[in-house]
Nucleic acid binder design. Structure first.
Lengths: 232, 232
DNA sequence: CGTTAATTTGACGGGAATCAAGGGGAGTGG
DNA sequence: CCACTCCCCTTGATTCCCGTCAAATTAACG
């Protein structure tokens, strides 16, 4: 990874879409903070659990999964990070999850210490970093409700709506992850995910042009099925 | 605990244990920040989901649960807050969960805006507030793994170990919450929680002097059963 | 075009939920 | 002081959703 840093530091041009979000304003007024560009192949590890958290990452293109595993291999994906998303930002000095590229992925890397230095000098930056963490916490709370109390159908419906909103505000969803990834994100098995999607398709709520290309057909019906939190 | 420092300024006797943690140093150097003392009866609401987040709270004695509910009443408890814990601290202007007293509870209340004012003036306070949120996020990630991938026995074992650590580093655990609360925390039913605790008792891992008074007998065995995250 | 991975679908089983009933402890009022 | 009541907890019987095991189909890739 250090080798990679060396090679990619030269080509500074950033390609790919950068989603809107609070993180876009994060580095406002900090032109010194230029990240190095790094590429990862499919399934390549970006950082490991318990590793020192030296860098903070921003997805340029592709997708990243962060996860935890139990001793016997059971895996829980904490989050999928899509273009524009920041990840790897910890309060602790070590990472609490492992990060891997879901597909061919390009990220920008920032030195954590540099970021923290700016935070100590600029109150606004400090506030934005905190807001970022707090937003992740809100999302985590929503996921606790999903994992603890929703049925398989509700989980999948919620997932598809989330992806629909995050990837293409309109149009087909182009999923970068496998059914197994989705299963490990929702606390299900890949077979249950597959079966549930098939059923949603049979009921006309979604349409599949391929396994990874899904279009939401009846958003309101899907939303109803997703049984969101009462206040939301 | 600054909070506690604040209380002890005029009221020297603070009852109840105050857990150690990063929040204890939160308000160092801000003696102006004195919280009002409030009491809540069992099951009384402290704040509601979607309500404006005007205050931040610190548990003095008793216990608080924060939770979300689905439209049909299914409930997921996000966290239990014990003496010494801070809660209700949001990045958003509104609360994302409901907070209720589990038992007779006393809290200290602080104006959120005052806290934020100190954060803008003191970098160290800002950092501690961020650390607090980040720690909650780490705990949430651990709970995602539990809810998504652990069995009933593993969930209950993990819960008992957590409570044992948080309540009395040694000695019997005195649970303030019902079996239903535990179930809604672990994504189970109250019957399954009851059955599982009975089984742990039969296997000699824990001993019950009453339903709410539990002693861990074989911590290593229980920890093994809890199947913690590989790196932890 | 062959090889391998990903996905789908079916059959079956099991772990936890649901339904139901019985005990026990704390508080209350007679 | 004791009976009564209301929860809370425990335990049993049964159901069912989802996991497991298995196989076929499709897609991806060199």
């Amino acid at each position: 990874m250090l080798l990679q840093t060396a090679t990619t530091i030269r080509n500074q041009h950033v390609k790919g879409p950068v989603a809107a979000g609070p993180e876009n304003f994060l580095f406002a007024g900090c032109p010194e903070l230029i990240g190095a560009r790094l590429s990862y192949r499919r399934d390549e590890e970006i950082y490991g659990e318990a590793e020192e958290a030296e860098f903070v990452y921003k997805v340029v293109s592709g997708a990243v999964r962060t996860y935890k595993v139990l001793n016997d291999g059971r895996r829980q994906i904490g989050a999928f990070h899509l273009p524009g998303d920041l990840f790897g930002f910890e309060s602790s000095t070590t990472h609490k999850l492992t990060a891997e590229a879901v597909t061919e992925t390009v990220v920008l890397v920032f030195k954590r210490r540099t970021l923290e230095y700016f935070a100590t000098r600029n109150v606004e930056v400090a506030r934005q970093l905190w807001t970022l963490t707090a937003c992740s916490l809100d999302q985590a709370m929503e996921r606790l409700l999903l994992l603890g109390r929703k049925t398989a159908a509700e989980k999948v419906a919620t997932f598809l709506l989330e992806m629909d909103q995050r990837m293409h505000p309109t149009g087909a969803i182009s999923l970068p992850m496998t059914r197994r990834d989705i299963a490990d994100y929702l606390g299900l098995t890949l077979e249950t995910v597959s079966r549930t999607i098939s059923q949603l398709q049979a009921e006309g709520m979604v349409a599949l042009s391929s396994a990874r290309q899904i279009t939401v057909q009846r958003r309101s019906k899907l939303r109803e099925l997703g049984s969101e939190d009462v206040y939301q």
